[in-house]
């Protein structure tokens, strides 16, 4: 990683308390936790709907997303837009913003492109199956002490370890 990044970051415990208090604020003021992945599903449903409305309306899973109207009026889309602005502000203020195609030492550009996309495919699919991602089920669920969050995080961790072990060279290791 670039050396300026290392110096720049806050203690993970401080960042963790910050995220925990933000999550608590969402619980308190909105009655729900923080999420991310369903914004992507909303986006995919909106794209499908604008390219071929009849086809999109036939997809039973997306019909719920489309019935609620425009994705821009949705909670999660506003939250993720805020996330982007917050991270951008932070990166600009700390002068850590730089355009790059980040990848592991052993990965070429094409391998990185393929890994990022196929990994994303798996994440998009599995987030729908699990009813959320590391934020919506993992962080928010575990913070409520809900069983869902803990079983999701545990199986994620074991599977990640196995994947990293099998593919130790060529990705990040």
């Amino acid at each position: 990683m670039p050396p300026e990044d290392k110096k720049n970051y806050w203690s993970p415990y401080i960042a963790g308390v910050g995220i925990g208090l933000t999550l608590l604020a969402a619980f308190f003021f909105a009655g729900r936790g923080l999420g991310a992945s369903s914004a992507f599903a909303r986006g995919a449903a909106a794209v499908a709907n604008s390219t071929n409305p009849r086809y999109a309306a036939g997809l039973a899973y997306f019909s719920d997303y489309l019935r609620e109207g425009s994705p821009f009026r949705d909670w999660i889309v506003f939250e993720v837009a805020g996330l982007f602005l917050g991270a951008l502000t932070s990166a600009l203020f700390t002068r850590s913003f730089s355009l790059r195609f980040d990848r592991g030492k052993g990965a070429g550009r094409f391998a990185r492109f393929l890994g990022a996309f196929t990994g994303g495919l798996l994440i998009g699919f599995s987030s729908r199956l699990a009813r959320g991602c590391t934020s919506g089920v993992g962080l928010s669920g575990a913070g409520q002490l809900a069983l869902s969050g803990w079983i999701f995080l545990l199986s994620l961790f074991v599977s990640g370890l196995l994947t990293a072990f099998i593919a130790r060279r060529g990705l990040w290791g």
Binding site: G119, T134, S155, G160, T163, A164
Partner: peptide, 15 residues
């Protein structure tokens, strides 16, 4: 979901 997600996480480097 967690098992598929963990593999996707390591492959893509993000969630």
């Amino acid at each position: 979901g967690g098992v598929l997600f963990g593999t996707g996480f390591v492959l893509s480097g993000y969630c």
